[in-house]
């Protein structure tokens, strides 16, 4: 894979790792970084060797937010024409499981990026926050929408209005993250989880993600119909035959993602 300016990528086994690589700026997100990120993610999404994508940040913070210098002179028309959030929309279209391994500060755009992940594992001591309100603006890359879907309106309003720092414990309590691990073991635990998922049948994971996302965004009856079609579709896979045969033959299945 080509080399990037603001991120670093690697593949180990069937897990791809993407690291935000501006540690001196606490991985603040500039537009170039975001477009590199989308490019890398889409690349791994199409790479047969990769089953799971892990996103993390180099240095002591996951990301302290957007690069403010970059947008001080923006006006509504320049922002509309730039259409920078189109890149962000593409994160939601990634089909493979995306695991975020976060630590330190997860602020503003960094928090929004974390909320694009399917699974979030946080180092002990991680703090989450939407500080945009303190700058006279608000989140613009999904923060108000995704946080509300996860934590509910009550806490979303409180956190977004005050801009206060939310502890990893509270983030866990309100369903924003999946688990907290010792900070020393963040990557080890994230990779362990990724490798566990990598042994599951990839097409099942893919259509489960598709169906769960449908649940977030549509009525129950519509979602039920959608789920059913995905369930039927999996019966067209070799992995379904393999899974069920292995069960009957009392052996471990070997999934190929086909």
């Amino acid at each position: 894979m080509k080399s990037f300016d603001f991120i670093e990528t690697s593949i180990e086994g069937s897990v791809a790792v993407i690291e935000l690589n501006r540690p001196r700026q606490l991985n603040s997100l500039n537009r170039k970084l975001v477009s590199e990120l989308v490019e890398a993610m889409e690349h791994f999404d199409r790479n047969d060797q990769v089953r799971i994508i892990v996103l993390t940040g180099k240095g002591r913070a996951f990301s302290a937010g957007a690069d403010i210098d970059e947008m001080t002179d923006d006006d509504p028309i320049s922002l509309e024409l730039l259409n920078q959030f189109a890149d962000w929309d593409r994160f939601a279209l990634i089909k493979k499981p995306l695991i975020g391994a976060v630590k330190g500060f997860v602020f503003g755009g960094g928090f929004e990026l974390a909320l694009c992940c399917d699974i979030l594992i946080a180092a002990s001591g991680t703090e989450f926050s939407f500080p945009e309100v303190g700058l006279g603006v608000m989140p613009g890359a999904g923060g108000t929408q995704r946080l509300t879907k996860l934590a509910g309106r009550t806490k979303a309003l409180e956190w977004l209005w005050t801009g206060e720092r939310v502890s990893a414990e509270d983030a866990l309590r309100y369903g924003v993250i999946n688990k907290i691990v010792a900070s020393e073991l963040l990557m080890e635990e994230a990779l362990k989880f990724a490798n566990r998922l990598a042994k599951q049948p990839p097409l099942s994971l893919r259509l489960i993600k598709d169906s769960v996302n449908k649940a977030v965004d549509s009525s129950l009856s519509e979602g039920m119909q959608y789920e059913r079609k995905n369930f039927y579709l999996l019966f067209a896979t070799q992995d379904q035959k393999e899974g069920m045969n292995a069960f009957i033959e009392k052996r471990k299945p070997d999934y190929r993602g086909k």
């Binding site: 691990v181 010792a182 020393e184 073991l185 080890e188 635990e189």
Partner: peptide, 8 residues
């Protein structure tokens, strides 16, 4: 997790 860290 603590023992893993100590073990290293």
């Amino acid at each position: 997790q603590g023992q893993r860290i100590a073990g290293l």
